[in-house]
Design a protein around this nucleic acid. Structure first.
Lengths: 151, 151
DNA sequence: ATTGGTGCAAAGGATTTGCAGTCTA
DNA sequence: TAGACTGCAAATCCTTTGCACCAAT
């Protein structure tokens, strides 16, 4: 419980990032050159905890006027994921979701609506992660509760 | 309860199914009309516990001579999944895996090799599945340990 | 005959790629 | 200026669809 509270506190800092200079710092801290397009994408995606597909990011970023191309959105999201700025969530075979919340948490996916939501802290716990072969190391553990609408 | 026990009993037999008539029975029990193509696909996929993509199934089924078309493979795998004969595993954004083991278990996915393996029983446990809204019901809980090769 | 199943090719949608032009450091 | 980054379009890859033909009841 205490752990999850602390994590939430840290997260709440990220989700409050608003100014361009804070975004720039964040990118630089994650070893990402803060180009005009990347900053714009980060402003949209990291503004709050959310799960967006590449296409949604593309739309949001270019809502007012065209700022970023499709190829750059894909490249940038992949880059952000590699650098740990966002988390890729693979639950829908038709597209990848990018989660602006990088702290440890799980997901609940509605197969009827295609909606992805967070499943917070104490709600579901992993007992123990198994020992792995010496050849490999764990990247992460993904837990997805798949639900559908009743009747 | 009785239903699920019966199903489990049948499933434990699945990995040993070899004869065509056993396959036919299995399909019929799962409310699937046993056509020539479906039986062939089931023979290949359900022969043992394995994780195959649609493309792999297509190749395996037509190894000797063309027996089933691509469209039918996709249709059939989707049908099998809906009927509970196989389990869809979504871990690789580029393709869906079909798991011939429908009993409760988790997965370990190597992002470098693209290989998917089972993670058996006691190795990793879910503490408690969270309460859901009245609107939805759980379809399943997927746990994936994502690993990569060292160095 | 009617219903369901199959095959082929075309369509669809997400993501990647090649390359020329542009920006950052 | 050199190396990175971006944009556009074309190309890929997986999966779905439309529709005519075949099969089983």
């Amino acid at each position: 419980m205490f752990d999850s509270e602390r994590v939430n506190t840290m997260e709440s800092m990220e989700s409050n990032i608003k100014t361009k200079s804070q975004i720039v710092d964040l990118l630089v801290n994650h070893d990402v050159t803060p180009t005009q397009q990347r900053v714009k994408i980060a402003e949209v995606l990291l503004a709050r905890h959310q799960h967006l597909s590449a296409d949604q990011v593309l739309d949001d970023v270019n809502r007012e006027r065209a700022v970023v191309s499709k190829a750059t959105v894909y490249n940038t999201l992949g880059l952000f994921a590699r650098k740990g700025l966002v988390r890729e969530v693979i639950v829908d075979p038709s597209k990848v979701f990018y989660d602006s919340n990088t702290s440890d948490h799980h997901h609940i996916f509605n197969v009827d609506t295609g909606k992805l939501e967070d499943l917070h802290g104490g709600m579901l716990q992993i007992g123990s992660v198994p020992a792995l072969s010496d050849q490999v190391e764990t990247v992460g553990v993904d837990v997805v509760v798949r639900v559908r609408n009743k009747n």
